[in-house]
Amino acid sequence: MNAFQRALDTVKILLTSVNALARGRVPSRDIWKQLYEFGNSSIGIVVLCVTFMGIILISEYSFHMKLVIGNDSMIPGFAMILLIRELAPIVGALLITSKMGASIAAELAAMKNTEQIDAYRLLGLNIVELYVAPRTLASSVAAWSLATISLAIAILGAWFSAVVFLNFSTGPFFQSLFIFVTAGDLILMSIKAVVFGCCIPSICAHYGLQASFGAEGVGHATTDAVVGTSITVIVMDFVITYLYAVLAS
């Protein structure tokens, strides 16, 4: 199977699940359950990672800005813009991929191995509508909420470290933040988070459904799903950022 066929199959899975969601064929009970799985179970780790990245970013930026401009009053704005535009959505998406995406691929591959998928087909049920559709909605909502919540806590973490280690006062810190961060940045972050979250279950489900037989097939499917999804997320991030850069200039 070449890359083009893979992409086609993934898009097909995504469209099928969006179609099922739009026609209301997915029971809301499933969606709530998956929202809990995607959102609640990974909030701790996403917040931890993004907060630490915020703290590191602010100290690195302080180093760079002193080197280039010679004063560091604009650091909070600059560092937090990078966090909002790039790191909050992308780190959240990568963590959701390795936590939930891997288990989607492993579960579907195991179901294929034990011929459960054929059994569903025999009963006239569509596995994509049944399994992937609730996860698509849940993961888009969860990716956006996780990005927003972790961002809020990361800004507080950055504020703390700026005040304690870099001799900032609270006023100038938030002033610089409010001057630099615009509605466009927040919209860009939301678009990125929702797009990544929406694509993760479909890509992982594709790898799970294409798994070869045997225990090794499950392992391979899981690994390939994590790698394929991470690479796709990075590439999509580049495309979205490029479009934004072209539109903004």
Binding site: C49, F52, S98, A102, G219, V226
Partner: peptide
């Protein structure tokens, strides 16, 4: 069993990411 392998892979990915971020700091 097979589910254990899936769990181990998930654990590896998550633990590596957390360890990398903390170590980076």
């Amino acid at each position: 069993g097979t589910q254990g392998v899936g769990l181990a892979v998930k654990k590896t990915a998550v633990q590596s990411m957390v360890a990398i971020v903390l170590a980076d700091f």
